[in-house]
């Protein structure tokens, strides 16, 4: 597999203006996604993970205070593109997104077949006939019978609607699909079958995924890589193996310990305290307040430190180990 990343994000920043001050929803985030790789962005609600997705697809609200950083999609410098060029060349054609609760946002009066064809017709300018053919194929991929094309959203179950939304993202055959909480509203069995669909598409189409979720167990269903966000920053980015079995950041460790396990007797342990506000987050390490291993260096803000092959941690505990500090990439 090519070592050159499909998506490379460097020091991305997205701040909002609010009535109470500047909310640092995405505050200096760096990561990359390789072709045919699935990155799971984990985090509790309000950590900025949805803002990160919206920033990548430029679905921005009006109260943006600052939006900067570097985003390279292949050789394209995405941040340098104008809005029109971005909409034409990147949005949906190369990077598609399934928004949170999108299954409930389907247009109730348009047949789902037409809704799925819409990205093709609007973004790629395809003819109706050609688009239809592709839609049928995409429906087969996501496991929706083709006679559902003629149905309206309310005639479908939640699981089917989620598949339709997924089809909408996949229909343009994008290189990267961003999924924001794609299964959190679904039942266990439906969740599992949606994850099966994602796995199969990843294997068969070579698509890359960025999956945003708060659910650690679901994330392990697809993750090649895991990025854990906390208060607008990525505190740890690592391969799934390393993250799930030997997390490096204290927050990662506590998060893993808080996950209830079905097949183990270990009791989950809560993480005391609450995440800080995105408006005026504490100086220094943002997790320091809740961290059991806090020490004096934590008063200064840690940079992402490299602790291993494609493994970065924002924690002073790792300052001595695994090579030079700084945001360098392998």
């Amino acid at each position: 597999m090519a070592a050159r990343p499909l998506l490379r994000v460097e020091d991305l920043q997205l701040h909002y203006r609010t009535r109470r001050g500047i909310a640092r929803a995405v505050d200096g985030v760096s990561f990359d996604i390789r072709a045919n790789e699935a990155l799971v962005v984990l985090g509790e609600s309000g950590c900025g993970k949805s803002s990160l997705a919206k920033a990548l697809l430029r679905i921005l609200p009006r109260n943006v205070h600052s939006f900067r950083g570097q985003v390279m999609l292949g050789d394209t410098d995405v941040m340098a593109l104008g809005d029109e060029a971005f909409r034409r060349d990147v949005q949906w054609t190369r990077v598609a997104m399934v928004m949170q609760a999108a299954m409930n946002a389907l247009n109730p009066v348009v047949r789902v077949g037409e809704q799925v064809a819409e990205p093709l017709r609007v973004h790629a300018g395809w003819s109706r006939e050609r688009a239809r053919e592709r839609v049928v194929r995409t429906f087969e991929q996501v496991g929706v019978a083709t006679d559902f094309l003629q149905r309206y959203p309310f005639e479908l179950s939640g699981g089917m609607r989620q598949r339709v939304v997924l089809a909408m993202a996949l229909v343009t055959e994008p290189e990267l699909v961003i999924l924001d909480e794609p299964t959190s509203a679904l039942d266990v069995l439906t969740q599992a079958s949606i994850m099966n669909v994602l796995k199969r598409i990843k294997r068969e189409q070579g698509t890359s995924f960025m999956l945003i979720t708060h659910d650690v167990a679901t994330s392990s269903e697809i993750a090649d890589r895991v990025a854990l966000m906390y208060a607008g920053q990525m505190v740890e980015v690592a391969d799934a193996d390393a993250f799930f079995h030997e997390p490096a950041h204290p927050y990662s460790q506590m998060l893993m310990a808080s996950v209830p396990r079905l097949r183990q007797q270990t009791e989950p342990a809560p993480i005391p305290g609450q995440p800080p506000e995105l408006i005026e987050p504490p100086a220094g390490c943002r997790f320091a307040d809740r961290c059991p291993r806090r020490f004096d260096r934590c008063a200064r803000e840690p940079e992402p430190l490299r602790v291993g092959e494609r493994h970065h941690v924002r924690c002073w505990l790792h300052a001595g180990s695994g090579g030079a500090g700084g945001g360098g990439r392998a």
Partner: peptide, 16 residues
């Protein structure tokens, strides 16, 4: 259908 966190999950398709 219920996964316990494990990186190996990503490599297997579940019986549903």
């Amino acid at each position: 259908a219920i996964a316990d966190v494990d990186a190996a999950n990503a490599r297997r398709v579940r019986d549903v």
